[in-house]
Simulated scan of single mutants.
Amino acid sequence: MPHLLVFGEQKIRHITVYALLLAVSAGVAAALVVPDLQVGNAMVTDPQWSEQHIAEWRIQAVLAYTSGSAVGHVCALLAGLLVARWSMTDARQAGFITALLAGSGLGAIQLAVASWAATPLLYELSDFPGTGDPMEDWVVNPGLQHHVPVLVGMALTFAVFLAVAAAGFWMAYRAVLLRFVLVGIIVVVMPIALFFTTAIALIPQP
């Protein structure tokens, strides 16, 4: 009976820690939507024709819809490390699957909250005031089905959540020096690489 009580307390602690990671990911995602929109707006200088306005909107969209992902990826890394710590040594396969599930949950909550916060703002930004001439005015269609690069950017960001959670689980069984190197890559290099991939490579300016 005492063993079951300890096991139950451990489960509650694990759930509490994971809930805290979810809350951090969600909170940061919501808080950074507006700053990310401003960054996207600054990346296209003085757009003049429709292709440039569409590129500007897509950059804003991909940054806003993936808002807070850098912090979320750190949370996924921590989740993978914690799952490895909490798993039994003879159940690594189950622990690895649990780490992937933890990463997917963090990715889902981050994208969901960012999308919830960003969608109404992006709908407003899709309206270009124009000149009043119907031959020159245009409006960006905010439906994401018309903006495949944005969807690809979101999918890539979600995939990184899984990869980072798996990396965290794998790192827990490696040497300390290797852990420091991988943490540096995930915390410093990966956000920069993801930014250039999603906001520049996927959406080149015309």
Score class of each variant (00 low, 15 high):
M1Y: 14
M1R: 14
P2N: 10
L5P: 06
L5Q: 14
V6T: 13
F7E: 15
F7L: 12
F7C: 10
G8Y: 08
E9A: 14
Q10E: 14
R13H: 13
I15A: 15
I15W: 12
V17P: 07
A19T: 05
A19Q: 08
L20D: 06
L21R: 10
L21V: 09
V24D: 02
A26N: 01
G27R: 04
V28A: 00
L32C: 06
V33L: 04
D36I: 08
L37S: 00
A42Y: 08
A42M: 08
Q48P: 10
W49P: 05
H53E: 11
A55Q: 04
A55M: 04
E56C: 08
W57P: 05
R58Q: 08
I59M: 11
I59Y: 06
I59S: 02
Q60C: 07
Q60H: 07
Q60S: 11
A61M: 04
A61L: 05
A64W: 02
A64C: 04
Y65V: 04
Y65I: 08
T66E: 00
G68I: 03
G68Q: 00
G72M: 06
H73I: 12
A76K: 00
A76G: 03
L77D: 04
G80F: 03
L81V: 08
L81Y: 03
L81N: 08
A84C: 13
R85F: 06
R85W: 00
W86L: 10
T89S: 13
D90L: 05
A91E: 14
R92I: 09
R92A: 11
R92H: 12
A94K: 15
A94E: 14
G95Y: 09
G95I: 02
T98A: 15
T98N: 14
T98P: 10
A99F: 05
A99W: 04
L100T: 09
G103D: 02
S104N: 14
S104C: 15
L106F: 09
L106H: 03
A108L: 15
I109F: 10
Q110S: 06
A112H: 08
A112P: 06
V113Q: 00
W116V: 13
W116E: 12
A118L: 01
T119I: 11
L121I: 02
L122M: 15
Y123G: 09
E124H: 11
P129A: 05
T131A: 01
G132L: 07
E136W: 11
D137R: 01
P142D: 01
P142R: 00
H147F: 02
L151A: 07
G153K: 01
A155Q: 07
A155D: 10
F158Q: 00
F158Y: 12
A163H: 08
A165F: 12
A167R: 00
F169S: 05
W170G: 09
W170S: 12
M171N: 01
M171H: 00
Y173L: 12
R174H: 14
A175S: 15
L177W: 13
L178Q: 13
L182C: 05
G184Y: 02
I185V: 09
I185Q: 09
I186V: 10
V189G: 11
M190A: 07
P191F: 07
I192R: 11
A193M: 09
T197Q: 10
I203M: 03
P204E: 02
P204I: 04
P204L: 00
Q205E: 13
P206Y: 03
